[in-house]
């Protein structure tokens, strides 16, 4: 194709998206669209499966049977969500194994928040409440993103995720209303998870490299700063309601703007964790790599067995 023809196709393509038409796997798409989507969807998928680890850390120690089954079901959902997203990504012409390869070699990123440790039971509450809360804010607009398979995966994810945040907040309520030790545990978890949750919504608009293009392709509907403000505005009253305090002395309601003002985010910490220097980066990655490597003989066995069965069937037919 000549450059002019491509330019023409690109224009038609952008118009389709502007008209809210969906792009489907076999449709023509600019290479940049494909690459950007592979990057974002796989990053999202990786976040789901790496995100299983910090919470999985507490499944065997959950304090009641009710909590144990809820947490198991939640972490299992995350595996499911990872699976839906990998599948969506695969429609763009890349295999799940290649995507894993990118994760395992550190080439692909995942949400940095999962590089923090879960050190008490209250962390499970805080993750459900804050991390899932922030994730939902990120994800709901993606249900109407331009790439069909991604949008459909997100609709399923959002539908299933509705219990996750409640699960976490309910844990926090119980702790906040419990013994002084429990309340302290809840406050401590909030103190540790609040700022990373705010960072989860991405760098400030001034620093964010992808925003403009992402807006055009409906990978984003609001800027990172807008989403962050929305998250703060909705979460602060929830903390007030259960008597917990945000670890931010500058946080206060602003009558004029109708929003909360908040203190400075430590972006230095954010970038350090992104670069791999968070408290658990190595553990998380090695857990994934181990699961994959230790599972290899199992996956091979299943393929070998399938092949033998296929051959048996053929022989019978002859």
């Amino acid at each position: 194709m000549s450059e002019k023809e491509i330019k023409n196709l690109e224009e038609i393509f952008e118009q389709r998206i502007a008209r809210d038409e969906k792009i489907e796997p076999k449709d023509w798409m600019p290479e940049k669209y494909r690459k950007t989507h592979i990057r974002q969807i796989s990053q999202h998928a990786h976040s789901e499966i790496v995100g299983m680890l910090p919470e999985g850390n507490w499944i065997t120690r959950a304090p009641s049977l009710r909590r144990k089954v809820a947490l198991l079901a939640k972490v299992q959902d995350e595996a499911g969500h990872g699976l839906y997203l990998y599948s969506a990504c695969e429609t763009l012409g890349i295999s799940r194994d290649e995507l894993y390869e990118q994760l395992h070699t550190g080439k692909a990123k995942y949400s940095s928040i999962f590089n923090y440790p879960t050190i008490t039971w209250a962390d499970i509450g805080a993750i459900g409440w804050l991390v899932d809360g922030a994730a939902i804010i990120n994800q709901v607009p993606l249900c109407s993103t331009s790439y069909g398979p991604y949008a459909r995966a997100m609709i399923r994810v959002c539908k299933e995720e509705s219990f996750h945040q409640r699960q976490g907040y309910e844990i926090m309520i119980k702790l906040a209303k419990g013994s002084p030790e429990q309340k302290e545990m809840a406050q401590d978890a909030l103190n540790r998870w609040w700022w990373p949750s705010l960072m989860m919504l991405g760098p400030t608009d001034a620093e964010s490299v992808h925003t403009e293009q992402s807006m055009k392709w409906k990978l984003k509907r609001k800027t990172n700063d807008e989403l962050r403000q929305q998250f703060i505005d909705q979460t602060v009253p929830q903390a007030d309601l259960i008597g917990l305090t945000m670890p931010d002395p500058d946080l206060k309601w602003n009558e004029e703007t109708g929003h909360y003002d908040f203190g400075d985010i430590d972006w230095d910490e954010f970038w350090q964790v992104v670069k791999g220097h968070g408290p658990c980066n190595e553990e998380r990655l090695s857990a994934r790599v181990n699961a994959w490597e230790e599972g290899e003989w199992v996956r091979d066995a299943a393929m070998a067995y399938a092949k033998k069965q296929e051959e048996k069937k053929l022989k019978k037919a002859i």
Partner: peptide
């Protein structure tokens, strides 16, 4: 079984084993 959640040989198998864990814990209750 729940110790394995997140560490299975494939995502699909991970989900399947967790389903069995949930069945068993449901019966336990």
């Amino acid at each position: 079984l729940s110790e394995l959640c997140g560490h299975g040989p494939s995502l699909e198998t991970d989900i399947a084993l967790t389903n069995m864990a949930l069945d068993l814990l449901g019966q336990t209750r």
